[in-house]
Amino acid sequence: MKLTQAHTDAGDVLEALNQISKGRMVMDWNEVTSGTNPYVVMKNSNIPGKSVIEIPGLVFGDKRKPVSRIGVGMTLTESVIELASAMKLDLIIVHHPVADAASSGGVPFADYLPLYDLALIEMHEAFHGLHPGLTLLHGHRKLKTDIAFGGIPGNILHKGIALEEVRTAGDILNRIDSFMGREIDRDILEAERAIRGEASLQEATLANPARLLSGTPGSTVKHVLHFFPHTGFTLEHLEKALAMYPETDTIIASISRVREDHEFVGLARRRGLNFIVGNPHSVEIMENGLPLAYALEMLLPQVDIFLLRERITAVPLKEVGHVQMVEYGKEMAATHLVAKSSRAVQML
């Protein structure tokens, strides 16, 4: 069903997202306090004051707020908020959970978002498992999905079978490279290096390519286990999954990554299995954000949808190319941050 009324408000957007998520969104705040919505989840590393409750719903703003321009992003940051302001967006939808200050430049939402008349919706666990895109991009068709493997919400495990055109580990790597448009990103990075005069400039997507950590490019691929290490997936989980699916020949870890010496890779090597690290978290805006944005456009054709994609770069301090800002940074550091204050000198 398309929601095609003449005027759209934040409540209509929430209804559309509830349709997309098969009823997982928080439609009434009582769902948060009552514990009746299983997608309202506490994330906690036991660091005092740093836990966050995921609330898949309208986190900030009024359901009656008129909406004609929506931004879809992955993670709320001050850069996203400022871009939304410049573009005169009415509503931001982000995948990842948000938190006062952490997601809004160190200040509360109530002090920041009203400046730009922005409403805010988050989804995260409510969006997981709704489409097979991540698995298809990585060369397999998912047969089974557990979004709480080992009883941990968000600890996703896909059991898949290789696509007909995917026969080797090398086919998966080539497929990822082609789908994600890495050649375009390489051209952009080279141009930026030349323009800025920063030869060692790095960009998050290109710095984390798909890699084969166990097996060879010609190794056969058919039965795939696909998981995401940052969700709490442990070695015990992997051993349990391999016991459940002993036919597995290929393991894929994506969104988050592991290195060559990780215990996951060691286990794969001991068992003669392929181990591939696939797409990094920096391209999830394309993997998950793009399907969500198109789904919203289909349901709300009268609303303009924008994809909010952050691009993160790093450069050695000695190579920062903007001379005027280099001089500014050095002066602030030397004069105000490193030099002893006159009061400190007097005390000595």
Rank of each mutant, 00 (worst) to 15 (best):
E203C: 07
A207I: 03
F228D: 09
T250Y: 07
L189Y: 09
L206G: 00
H226G: 04
E203V: 07
P229H: 01
T220H: 10
T250E: 07
A162D: 05
R196D: 05
F228E: 06
D187L: 12
T216M: 11
R167P: 06
R167L: 09
N208C: 12
N174C: 14
D185P: 02
I188Q: 09
K240Q: 14
G160M: 00
T234S: 15
T250N: 02
R182G: 05
E239K: 15
P217C: 02
A199E: 14
E203R: 10
G181M: 03
L163I: 12
A162K: 07
S219W: 04
M180C: 08
S219V: 09
H230G: 11
T234P: 09
G181Y: 07
L242S: 02
E247H: 00
E236Q: 12
L173I: 14
P229L: 03
T234N: 07
P246T: 02
L173S: 00
E203A: 07
K240W: 01
A194W: 09
G160V: 00
L225E: 02
P209G: 11
P209A: 09
N208A: 13
A210V: 02
I176A: 06
R196Q: 08
E203K: 07
A169Q: 08
S200H: 15
N174L: 14
L235M: 11
Y245N: 09
L201F: 06
H230M: 08
K240H: 09
D187H: 13
L225Y: 06
P209F: 11
G215F: 02
T216I: 08
Q202S: 15
T216E: 15
S214Q: 05
S200Q: 11
G215W: 05
L212N: 07
L238R: 00
A169F: 10
T205A: 14
Y245S: 08
T216Q: 13
E198H: 05
I161S: 03
M244Y: 04
A243G: 12
G160D: 01
S200D: 13
L173K: 04
T231M: 07
I172M: 00
R182Q: 11
E198D: 04
R186S: 08
A191K: 10
T248D: 01
A207R: 12
F179D: 08
A162C: 06
E192R: 15
H226R: 00
A199P: 10
S178Y: 05
R186D: 00
E236H: 10
G215N: 00
E198A: 00
S219G: 14
E247R: 08
K159H: 13
D171E: 01
L212S: 01
I195G: 04
A191C: 06
H230D: 07
F233M: 00
E236L: 08
I176E: 08
L225R: 04
H226Y: 11
R167W: 04
K240M: 08
L213K: 06
F233R: 04
R196G: 01
R167M: 06
D171F: 03
P229W: 03
S178E: 12
F228H: 15
D177W: 14
N208Y: 08
R167V: 05
L163M: 15
F233W: 01
D185G: 00
E198M: 09
R175Y: 04
G197E: 10
Y245W: 13
H237E: 02
E239D: 11
E203Q: 14
R186Y: 03
